[in-house]
Simulated assay, not measured.
Amino acid sequence: MSNQPYEGPYEGQYQGYDGNHDPYAQQHQQPQAPAQAQAPAQAWPGHQQAYDDPQAAQQYTQQWQGQTWDTQVQQTRPAASDLAYFPPQNYQAAAQSHDPHAQPPRPEAPEAQAPAGDGYGPPSLAGNARITDAQRARLEGRSPIIEPGMQPAALTAVLALLLSVTAQIGSYALVVPLVILQAVTAAGWFRLNGMWPARQGIALAFAGALVADVALLAAGRENGPAAILGTLGVWVLLSLVMQLRSHADPDTRITSLMATVASAALAILAAGHLAAEPDAVTVGAAAVAVAILARALPLPTVASVIVSLLAAAGAGIAVGGMTGMGAKGALLGAGAAVCALIGHRVASYDYPSRFVHFTAGVALPLAAAAPAVYLLGRALV
C-alpha cells in the first residue's frame, strides 16, 4: 500500500472550497453579539449561556420579559377564592412535562346539589364543611325554632288531665302518671341536648325521680321540700362520681355531667306534684293542659302566648270553683301556665327532632310547672 494521501475524484473539489462565496458560511461568520443579546428571549429556561461580560449577563437577566411556559402556568393558576370550589391542582406534575404548551386542566364548576340529608349540606373545601338546618335558617333570615305542634300538645293535655284527676283520688294513684312524666322528662332532656344514646344518664336521672317519689310517700307532703332537696343533693353527688369514673375526654365529661344533673333535677322536681296540695295539682294540671293546647293553635307567637295565659286563668277559675279554690284558681292557673310555656319554649329550641317533640315537648311543660303548683298551692289553699 502507498503512504501517499488519497487523491480521489473528490479531492479537488474540497481543496477549491472557499467559504467566502458560500452564503451559509457567511451567515455563520456573522458577529455573535446580536445573537447573544437575543439569546435570553429565545433560550429555554434552565439552559445556561456563557457571557463574556458578567455585567451584561446580569443586565439581561434583570430585563427578562420573555414569556415561557413557567410564566404561563402562573397566569393560569386559580385565585385564592377559587380554591374553595375547585380541588387542588398538581402543578408540579404538569411542570415536569416536556410540552411547553401543557397546562393543568381546569375542572368544571360543580353543579348545584341538594342537601346531603340529616340536617347537613354538601361538603366543600372552604373550611365551612357542613351546616345544620338551624344555621341555614339563620343565614336565610328564618327562625330556627320549631314548636312541637298539636300532637305533642294533645299528649301533654292527656297526661295533665291524668294528673288532675288522680290527684283527687290519692297519692298512690297520682304516682302512676307522675312516673310516666318523670321517665319521659329524663329521656327527653338528654335527646334535647343531642346526647343519644345515654342509657346510664337517663337511668340515673329516672332512678333519682323514683327515690324522690318514695321519699315523699314515706315522709308525707309536709316534708316534701326536704325529701326533694335531699334526693337532688345525693343525685348531684352520684352524677359527679359517675363522670369521674368515665374515660372520656374532659369536654365530653363536662357536657355529660351538666346534662345528667339537669335531667335528674327536672325529673326530681316533677315530684313537686306529689308534694303539693291535691286541689292545687288538679287546678294547675288542668290549666297547663288548656294553655299548651292554646299555644299550639296557628296564631302569631305573641297572640298565642296571650291566648294561652288567658285560657289557663279561665281554666283555673273553672276548675277552682269545683275544688273550693274559687277565684284563686285563676292566679294558680296563670302561674302554672307561665312555667309550662317556658318548658314548651325550651323543647322548641334549635330545630329539635320529632323524638324531642314527643318526649321533651310533652314532659317539660308539666315538669316545669311543678314548682309553681307546689308554691302557689301552699300559698293559696
Rank of each mutant, 00 (worst) to 15 (best):
L364C: 03
L139H: 08
T61P: 00
Q103G: 02
L240T: 10
G170A: 11
M322D: 05
G343A: 11
V290S: 08
D52N: 08
Q4S: 11
Q72G: 06
N128M: 12
G46T: 09
Y17S: 02
A259L: 01
A296S: 15
H98G: 10
L274I: 11
L238V: 14
G314P: 11
G320A: 08
P88H: 12
A126Y: 03
A360V: 03
Q48I: 04
P225M: 10
I292D: 01
L161W: 09
Y91I: 12
C339W: 00
L375F: 14
A340E: 05
L229H: 02
T231S: 11
I306K: 02
G170K: 06
G361L: 11
A183W: 15
A347W: 00
D53Q: 09
R142N: 13
A173W: 14
D133I: 03
V158P: 02
P105S: 13
L375K: 00
A126K: 11
N193D: 09
P87H: 05
L266G: 03
G194S: 07
R221S: 10
A39R: 11
T156H: 08
G224L: 07
A183P: 00
T132K: 00
A285T: 07
V356Q: 10
V236M: 13
S256Y: 01
Y374K: 04
G343L: 06
A95L: 15
A137G: 03
Q62G: 13
T61R: 13
P45M: 07
S143C: 05
G272S: 10
V214E: 04
S256R: 14
W235H: 13
L229K: 05
L237H: 00
L162V: 04
P45V: 05
S2T: 15
A35Q: 08
L181E: 06
V281W: 01
A259E: 00
I228H: 02
G377M: 01
M242I: 05
D52P: 14
A286N: 02
E222T: 13
D251F: 05
N90R: 14
H28F: 15
A157L: 08
Q67S: 08
N193P: 00
P197H: 04
M258C: 10
Q55T: 13
P371S: 06
P123W: 04
L210T: 09
A369Y: 03
D279K: 14
K328L: 10
F206E: 01
G316A: 03
G321V: 02
L257H: 09
A218Q: 12
